[in-house]
């Protein structure tokens, strides 16, 4: 069993729209609850958090701090989830339940590497 990082990109525009209505917002969050709840029941959930839109970028040996470049909307990282899975294929199957996909979002699935020699 390996750990996988699921990186969520985009999907935020739709979420903002849903924030206008408490009922729709609750329904949207209920989807997260169902998806992550199922993972928890299977013992595969490790952790997950959404990210704020604002941030900083630190670059190079000079440690230059800038406000960007952040790509807009679709490609911006909006959150992550770490889960356990037997294979990349299973992790991909898991990722298909992610609610961001319903709002034109993208999920990138990556196995967490072990750096042991």
């Amino acid at each position: 069993m390996a750990e996988y990082l699921l990186i969520f990109r985009g999907g935020d525009a739709a979420r903002e729209e849903e924030q206008q209505s408490p009922e729709r917002w609750q329904a949207h969050m209920e989807k997260w609850m169902q998806w992550m709840g199922a993972l928890t029941e299977q013992g595969k959930f490790v952790g997950a958090q959404p990210l704020k839109v604002a941030g900083r970028v630190v670059t190079g040996t000079g440690k230059v701090v800038t406000d960007g470049p952040f790509v807009e909307g679709k490609e911006m990282v909006g959150g992550y989830l770490i889960c356990k899975a037997e294979s990349l294929e299973e992790a991909v199957e898991i990722s298909k339940g992610c609610p961001v996909l319903e709002h034109d979002g993208i999920v990138e699935v990556r196995e967490i590497n072990s750096l042991a020699h």
């Binding site: 969050m29 997260w32 609850m33 992550m36 709840g37 928890t40 997950a48 958090q49 959404p50 959150g79």
Partner: peptide, 8 residues
């Protein structure tokens, strides 16, 4: 567990 994530 799910009390730890802002999603849930």
């Amino acid at each position: 567990t799910l009390l730890q994530s802002e999603y849930t």
